[in-house]
């Protein structure tokens, strides 16, 4: 057994102690078994989306709010995506991106790297909210056909969330997607 030896003290009470290693190992093994049984090996995550819901009017709200630029992502065609920057109802710029899906893995997951690249460069050039202390995010609106499968919708949302920005809330700094996405209702 492991012991603590404080040396000899002739004639006095023995101060040496033995550490009971076997119960200690038993305890550790129990702990390992418990933690292994309760462990969660989950690979689940989430992608955020935001519904544009108008709240009640605030007393300090200005009468006229200048519309911000929004990125509208059209995924209605089979061949291409259309990125449209709009300021209110005014179209500022329109960009076409080839709809090239890249297969990922064996379960039929796809990504759109060309779209992700274009959205990233567009945000770098036209994004309004880039400062880490800015609490607002740029808004993206997704227009999709009613028959589009959800896996394709998620692949496009994933591409829209490719540009990441620093975001500081209090003392906590983190990287978050630069856009906040919502669905077009029409």
């Amino acid at each position: 057994m492991a012991g603590i030896d404080v040396g000899g003290h002739g004639g006095k009470r023995n101060l040496n102690h033995e550490i009971p290693l076997i119960p200690f190992i038993d305890f550790l093994l129990c702990l390992v078994a418990f933690l292994l049984v309760t462990a969660v090996w989950s690979q689940m995550a989430r992608i955020n989306a935001d519904a544009k819901v108008p709240g009640p009017p605030r007393p300090d709200e200005p009468d006229e709010i200048k519309p911000e630029k929004e990125l509208h992502v059209e995924m209605r065609g089979d061949k291409k995506f259309q990125l449209v920057w709009k300021e209110g109802a005014t179209v500022v710029n329109t960009i076409d991106v080839d709809r090239k899906a890249v297969n990922m893995g064996t379960e039929g997951d796809i990504t759109f790297p060309a779209l992700a690249e274009k959205v990233t460069s567009e945000w770098k050039n036209n994004g309004n909210h880039k400062a880490p202390t800015d609490k607002k995010f740029d808004r993206a609106v997704l227009h999709t056909d009613n028959s589009t499968p959800f896996s394709d919708v998620i692949a496009v949302i994933d591409a829209v969330y490719a540009p990441q920005r620093d975001f500081t809330l209090g003392a906590k700094a983190q990287k978050l997607p630069a856009f906040n996405l919502t669905f077009a209702v029409n």
Binding site: M44, A45, R46, I47, E107, I154, A155, I157
Partner: peptide, 13 residues
């Protein structure tokens, strides 16, 4: 439910 997969994700809540 067979969930799709994505790269730019955040942790569950």
């Amino acid at each position: 439910v067979r969930l799709p997969k994505a790269e730019n994700v955040i942790d569950m809540t």
